[in-house]
């Protein structure tokens, strides 16, 4: 038997009395005195259960005190009624800000891409025209030299503009973060809403005077894959694909 168990069964009645009761119990059984037997068993059990009642009483007081201090804690009321809705608004604002930033970036990349395309087109056209001039003035060595260096310049301009187009596409793709972070934030907002509802409910039970907000007793929505469960975090389990290759492998295994 462990230390705690011994403590839990510490009888409240003295050793002498218990021994006397036990001996009397043996005697009652021997004499087939069933009334006396029942009474003695009751007394012996009471020697232990007195402790249990004390313990239940103590726990009840503790629960009562805790609930009382919970109800009296202004901080919890403020948390449920002001700070949590405030936190949700802040998160919504983060979504708005990232959306604005992403939209701004997309507008600029959309404007810049045709500019880069124009540079490529014009450079190539100019290069062609210069080649024609050089061909018609083939005996002019000085002109040939100038056309050569201009052609080299136009080729490098074309390369730069092509690279720029690729980089603009990368910048555009990076804005994808707004969709993913937005979806994740909306889930946190949802969670805050549920927590807030529960906290308000609890505060109402402990202190009914706090007002009657959110009493529809609506249960927390259950996540269903059907409805979509949003982006998964990088350390999610095996039931989540890690990248496009995983998706392709899974679909291939289904005969795709």
């Amino acid at each position: 038997m462990t230390q705690t168990e011994e403590q839990d069964f510490q009888p409240v009645v003295g050793r002498e009395k218990r021994l006397a009761d036990a001996r009397a119990l043996v005697e009652a059984i021997e004499n087939e005195d069933s009334a006396g037997e029942a009474q003695l068993i009751g007394e012996l059990t009471a020697a232990y259960s007195g402790n249990i009642f004390d313990e239940v009483g103590r726990m009840t007081r503790e629960v009562h005190d805790t609930l009382k201090s919970f109800a009296e804690d202004e901080r919890l009321g403020a948390l449920a009624e002001d700070e949590m809705p405030d936190a949700r608004d802040r998160l919504r604002y983060v979504i708005t800000l990232t959306e604005q930033a992403a939209t701004r970036t997309l507008t600029i990349t959309e404007e810049a891409t045709p500019t880069a395309e124009q540079i490529v087109d014009r450079s190539q056209r100019l290069k062609g025209e210069l080649a024609k001039v050089a061909a018609s003035e083939a005996d002019n060595a000085r002109l040939g030299g100038v056309v050569d260096s201009m052609t080299r310049y136009l080729d490098s301009t074309t390369n730069c503009a092509e690279r720029l187009k690729g980089q603009l596409t990368e910048i555009m793709m990076a804005q994808e973060f707004q969709d993913l972070s937005g979806q994740l934030l909306m889930r946190v907002i949802d969670l805050l809403e549920q927590l807030e509802e529960k906290l308000v409910g609890l505060l109402q039970i402990t202190a009914p005077v706090r007002g009657a907000k959110g009493e529809d007793g609506r249960s927390a929505p259950v996540e269903r894959a059907e409805d979509g469960v949003g982006p998964q975090l990088p350390n999610a389990g095996d039931n989540v694909v890690k990248n496009q290759d995983d998706v392709d492998d899974l679909l291939a295994s289904l005969g795709f």
């Binding site: 979806q183 894959a225 469960v229 039931n239 989540v240 694909v241 998706v247």
Partner: peptide
């Protein structure tokens, strides 16, 4: 962004032609 295996399987069963995460 839905990346659970069961979701990809479900989409395939419902007749999707391609799936990109």
């Amino acid at each position: 962004a839905e990346a659970k295996r069961e979701q990809i399987v479900l989409a395939a069963q419902e007749g999707v032609n391609g799936y990109i995460v």
